[in-house]
Simulated scan of single mutants.
Amino acid sequence: MAKAAPKDMTSKYTTGKFQQIIDKCEGCERMVEVESAKYCSTYTMPEAKWRLGLCNFATHVKHEISVSTLKINPLKASKRAATAGKKK
């Protein structure tokens, strides 16, 4: 749901500096509605924020953090541990 911009801020969005939001921005809390057009209150070009994946300003998208585990060969690990003690 877009909130209406204050009257003193409407010129900021209507001068052409800010571009309208794209469909991926729908549902974000940072949307501002000015004269029946929706703009991002944080970023001037919302399309550019979505080019490489998720927008880091998006409040409606949950970012997933993936943790990968590294497989270690137990035989090599035991040999490394044994030689590490001898090098002193």
Rank of each mutant, 00 (worst) to 15 (best):
33 E>A: 00
68 S>W: 07
18 F>Q: 03
73 N>R: 03
69 T>Y: 14
63 H>K: 07
85 G>K: 04
46 P>H: 11
74 P>A: 02
64 E>R: 02
12 K>P: 02
83 T>Q: 03
75 L>V: 12
76 K>Y: 09
16 G>I: 01
35 E>M: 08
12 K>W: 04
11 S>Q: 12
67 V>Y: 07
82 A>G: 00
13 Y>Q: 06
40 C>A: 06
82 A>H: 00
33 E>P: 00
14 T>M: 12
41 S>L: 07
15 T>C: 15
32 V>D: 01
80 R>Q: 00
7 K>V: 12
60 H>K: 04
59 T>S: 14
30 R>C: 10
63 H>A: 05
82 A>T: 00
55 C>I: 06
33 E>H: 00
83 T>R: 03
16 G>Y: 06
9 M>F: 12
21 I>Q: 05
83 T>Y: 01
12 K>G: 01
39 Y>V: 04
12 K>L: 12
24 K>L: 11
14 T>K: 11
17 K>D: 05
2 A>N: 03
46 P>D: 11
6 P>V: 06
28 C>N: 11
65 I>T: 15
50 W>V: 09
68 S>L: 10
76 K>N: 12
48 A>F: 11
50 W>C: 10
35 E>Y: 09
28 C>K: 06
6 P>T: 07
71 K>V: 13
60 H>W: 06
87 K>Q: 04
88 K>L: 06
49 K>H: 09
79 K>H: 02
58 A>D: 01
46 P>K: 11
20 Q>A: 14
51 R>P: 00
37 A>Q: 14
33 E>N: 01
36 S>P: 03
39 Y>A: 05
58 A>P: 02
25 C>R: 00
76 K>L: 13
26 E>G: 07
36 S>D: 15
10 T>G: 00
69 T>K: 15
46 P>R: 04
63 H>C: 00
85 G>I: 01
59 T>R: 11
40 C>F: 01
47 E>S: 14
37 A>H: 15
57 F>W: 11
45 M>A: 15
30 R>P: 02
59 T>P: 07
6 P>A: 11
29 E>Q: 02
11 S>I: 08
70 L>S: 03
29 E>I: 01
43 Y>T: 05
65 I>M: 08
85 G>P: 00
38 K>A: 11
27 G>A: 08
30 R>L: 08
76 K>R: 11
84 A>L: 01
50 W>I: 07
24 K>S: 13
1 M>C: 10
9 M>S: 12
26 E>L: 11
69 T>W: 13
39 Y>Q: 05
87 K>M: 08
21 I>E: 07
55 C>G: 05
62 K>T: 11
74 P>S: 07
25 C>Y: 03
22 I>L: 10
49 K>W: 01
8 D>A: 13
37 A>K: 15
67 V>Q: 05
48 A>V: 14
81 A>R: 06
35 E>L: 09
65 I>H: 10
17 K>T: 10
60 H>E: 04
24 K>E: 09
68 S>T: 06
42 T>H: 10
36 S>E: 15
72 I>S: 09
80 R>I: 04
16 G>F: 07
44 T>H: 14
32 V>P: 02
40 C>G: 05
16 G>A: 09
41 S>N: 08
36 S>V: 12
71 K>L: 06
54 L>W: 12
57 F>G: 13
54 L>Q: 14
13 Y>A: 02
73 N>M: 00
78 S>V: 05
